[in-house]
């Protein structure tokens, strides 16, 4: 028996547990009794047609909405957090959940470097003794600031963006802004990274780069990644598990290969009237089989 345990492929611990989550907006049930888990060191994709409630799930996890019902729990090291009880900034700061937004939300009039430094606010604030040590320019703070700068620089180097470090974010190309938003989220040193349609608006070359970036984040940092994405090529290529939402409810869950041929999923994407239609549109799970 003990030998068998070692042979079983190691299942990483559950990082995020969403249990019976519901979110109601007036008469609309945007998320309907949804349960799933996301594991550390894995990419968990959240897919579904437009308006399925994917972003709403993110907003519940990151504390922007208080769920109507259900629980969201996160295990970070030996501490556990009830995300449905925590305020948004504490979810980011204490629980270590970082996110990007479907419509990029950088600080447009600040430089790229400044954006990455704001992401390290909590630890810099502590190092500056809530500004006192900072005002006096004490050594401890200067060192912490230098470390923060070098972390930011590391990310810019990794993304090949050092040359735009001192440019205002608002002036940069869309694809670059997408990358910077991911770097900014990573600068918070999270244990769970939530990406809301990171490939939207990217060209195929940029999408391929993005896919390499996300897998390298998973491999190198061992953090959990929660990915909302419409680009099925990307999703099928890099996800470890996929959760499919339709009208707020989970209609399928499993490995990419299982999802690709799941009739319920194909139906949800292509409409009720033509259940056996071939996976032709790029939105359909079958597309982008190449991976």
């Amino acid at each position: 028996m003990t030998v068998a345990v070692a042979d079983v492929p190691a299942v990483p611990p559950d990082l995020l547990t969403v249990a019976h989550l519901s979110m109601r907006f007036g008469g609309l049930l945007a998320v309907d009794d949804l349960s799933f888990v996301a594991r550390a060191g894995q990419i968990t994709a959240l897919i579904g047609p437009n308006g399925a409630g994917k972003t709403t799930v993110f907003n519940c996890i990151t504390g922007f909405y208080r769920p109507t019902a259900g629980h969201i729990a996160l295990e970070r090291g030996d501490r556990s957090f009830d995300l449905d009880q925590l305020s948004g900034h504490r979810i980011a700061r204490d629980a270590g959940v970082a996110r990007t937004f479907q419509n990029i939300r950088l600080f447009p009039r600040m430089t790229v470097l400044e954006n990455l430094l704001v992401a390290q606010h909590a630890k810099l604030m502590r190092a500056s003794a809530f500004s006192l040590a900072g005002l006096l320019g004490l050594k401890g703070f200067r060192e912490a600031e230098a470390r923060a700068m070098s972390l930011a620089e590391d990310w810019l180097t990794r993304l090949g963006l050092v040359h735009v470090a001192d440019r205002e974010c608002g002036t940069l190309a869309y694809g670059i802004q997408r990358k910077i938003e991911i770097a900014r989220a990573m600068c918070t040193e999270p244990c769970l990274l939530c990406l809301d349609e990171p490939a939207a608006g990217l060209n195929p070359r940029e999408t391929a780069e993005l896919s390499r970036l996300i897998t390298s984040i998973r491999g190198e940092f061992g953090i959990g990644v929660l990915l909302i994405e419409h680009d099925m090529g990307l999703v099928m290529g890099i996800s470890d598990r996929i959760v499919v939402l339709d009208h707020g409810a989970c209609i399928a869950e499993g490995k990419p290969a299982e999802i690709r041929n799941n009739p319920a999923v194909i139906r949800a994407y292509l409409g009720e009237e033509d259940p056996r239609a071939g996976p032709g549109s790029t939105d359909a799970p079958g597309a982008g089989d190449g991976a």
Binding site: G88, H89, A92, D94, A98, L106, V118, T188
Partner: peptide
Amino acid sequence: EDEIAARALG
């Protein structure tokens, strides 16, 4: 610049 993004960064 953006209160929502700021909150999401802690």
